[in-house]
Amino acid sequence: MMLEFYGQQVASRLLMGTALFPSPDILQKAVRASHASIVTVSVRREAASAQSGQSSQSGQGFWELIRQLDVRVLPNTAGCKSVKEAVTTAKMARELFETNWIKLEVIANDDTLQPDLFGLVEAAKILCDEGFEVFPYTTEDLGAAERLLEAGCEILMPWGAPIGSARGLNNPFALESMRAYFPDTPLIIDAGIGAPSHAARAMEMGYDAVLLNTAIAKAGDPVHMAKAFAGAIEAGRSAFLAGVMEPRDMASPSTPVAGTPFFKLD
């Protein structure tokens, strides 16, 4: 069955961020190479002098660039540290991008950029009640996850590791528990991915999708890395569907023992 987020079919299990790329041209090429069908965007203050031109550095220019890619956008509330900031930012994003989708971030701490789970739940409730379709950036905390679902979220996005840290899956045990605890909720690993192997592991665990930005944007060759992540995510998904064997403590020969030349009973 095809993956769906809030009733919308999703063609790719890789969601890609659009920030930190060396140039707009490389961003466009990387999105195409990744085959991502959803990209994240933000709203930011714009200097009055920047808006008149169509430079890709201006908001208008950036929007034109995204439109050309023919992808769905998932606006974020990145940088918001209070419920009020996040709710107002979400409303501005809804008008700007003409979508009810919002990647909800309420940040607790500058060093870890970890979610403020209390603020997150509160903001999620307000936004869900106002018709938003919320993608909450959360941790692997099961209690917070339940509160988010009760608030009206239909998707959860636990972090792999702190944003931009490239550490991969910091707490695989908890992430596996979360997958097992919420078998029917779309779960997306958001943040902390560094290498395609990290993304593949998340997919092997049964996560539905991976959202990443820095690992592609800051790679030596972002376009090539976008392709590498697409392949890793597809491979991880296939492996999950195929069923990965259980590890065991002792060796077990793969070549048949029966008929081994020179075999003698001890």
């Binding site: 203050r45 714009e46 808006q51 201006s58 950036f62 990145a78 700007l96």
Partner: peptide
């Protein structure tokens, strides 16, 4: 007053 526009985001 805040006036915002679309921008790159993660």
């Amino acid at each position: 007053i805040e006036i915002v526009a679309p921008r790159q985001g993660g």
